[in-house]
Structure formats: C-alpha cells, structure tokens
C-alpha cells in the first residue's frame, strides 16, 4: 500500500515538474544581471566621488558608499518603491547589500502593528537573522583559524 502511494506520488511529482511553468530563465537572468550590475555601479560611483574628499580614503569611501546604499534602500522600502524594483530584479536586488537592508526594514515595518518593542524590535531580524548569525559564527571560526595558522607558523 505504501509502495503504491510512493509510486503514485513519484509519478505525480514528475508530472507536476513537467507542467509547472518555469520562470522565464533568460529573461530573469538578464534582469538580475542588469539590476545587480547597476547597483554595484552606483556603489562604485559613490565610492569614487566620496574618495575625492580629502579626509576620506578609498577604504572609508567604500564603507560610506555601502551605508548610503543601505539607507537609500530602507527609505525606498518605507515608501513602498523597493518591492516593485525587486519583483524584476530577483537576485539582482537581494544579493547586493541593499537587499539585506530591505529585508530588515520590511520586517521591522511589517510587525510594527504588534508594537515597537514586541513587534518591530523582535521581528526585525526575521529574514536577515540567518545572515547575521552565520556571519558571526563563521567569521569567528575563520578568524580563529587564521590566528591558529599564524601561531603555528611562528613556532
């Protein structure tokens, strides 16, 4: 009986895979490329412009430019423009750092109705939590490994 059901399900899933319309691959890839690339170019323009200021070096300019991208994305999220771009961009809009900002601010706004403390503050990391947690854990691991290697090398 279970075999029969497993077989039925397998046939059905194969059939579903066949009939489900897939995202127009070429189309969505081109859009992801264009929007993702454009975001990086904007970041680069900001970085080069900021570096023109005498007190800002290239490294600081990179930090400032990503901060500007993040802020812009959050404002766009607030005004409800961002998800219209994102619908076209796909990976092109969530992979750059502003996608991270959008995920954070959209969750913050969404759960505002449950209160600033019990809603916004709790759920802000709903979507980006995995990025933060994995980032901390694995960067610490990486830092420890690099440190160990250097200790062993200096012996």
């Amino acid at each position: 009986m279970t075999d029969k059901i497993a077989k039925r399900n397998k046939t059905y899933i194969e059939y579903v895979e066949k009939v489900s319309p897939s995202t127009n691959a070429t189309h969505s890839l081109i859009k992801a490329f264009a929007i993702g690339g454009a975001t990086c170019v904007i970041g680069e323009i900001l970085r080069n412009l900021l570096a023109l200021a005498p007190s800002i070096d290239d490294k600081a300019a990179a930090v400032y430019s990503s901060v500007i991208l993040v802020t812009a994305a959050i404002i766009m999220t607030g005004t409800g423009v961002y998800d219209n771009i994102a619908r076209h961009g796909g990976a092109g809009s969530f992979l750059p750092i502003r996608g991270f900002a959008n995920a954070m601010s959209s969750a913050a706004m969404e759960f505002r109705s449950e209160g600033l403390i019990t809603g916004t503050a709790v759920k802000m990391f709903n979507v980006v939590g995995p990025v933060i947690v994995n980032g901390i854990v694995w960067s610490a691991a990486s830092g420890t490994i690099v440190w160990l290697v250097s200790v062993i090398a200096s012996l």
């Binding site: 993040v70 959050i74 607030g78 900002a101 601010s105 969750a107 706004m109 600033l116 802000m124 960067s139």
Partner: peptide, 25 residues
C-alpha cells in the same frame, strides 16, 4: 567581524527602526 561591519548593520537597524515608525506597509 561585528566591529568591522557595525557601520552598515548599525545604520540599517537604526534606519529600519525609524522607517517602521514613520511608514506602514
């Protein structure tokens, strides 16, 4: 790691907080 990325994350958290007060989805 946290210290180096704190600029972006800090700004993102603060800005998200403000945006959530000002705008609604």
């Amino acid at each position: 790691g946290l210290v180096e990325t704190a600029f972006g994350v800090g700004v993102a958290v603060a800005a998200s907080y403000i945006v959530s007060v000002v705008f609604s989805p």
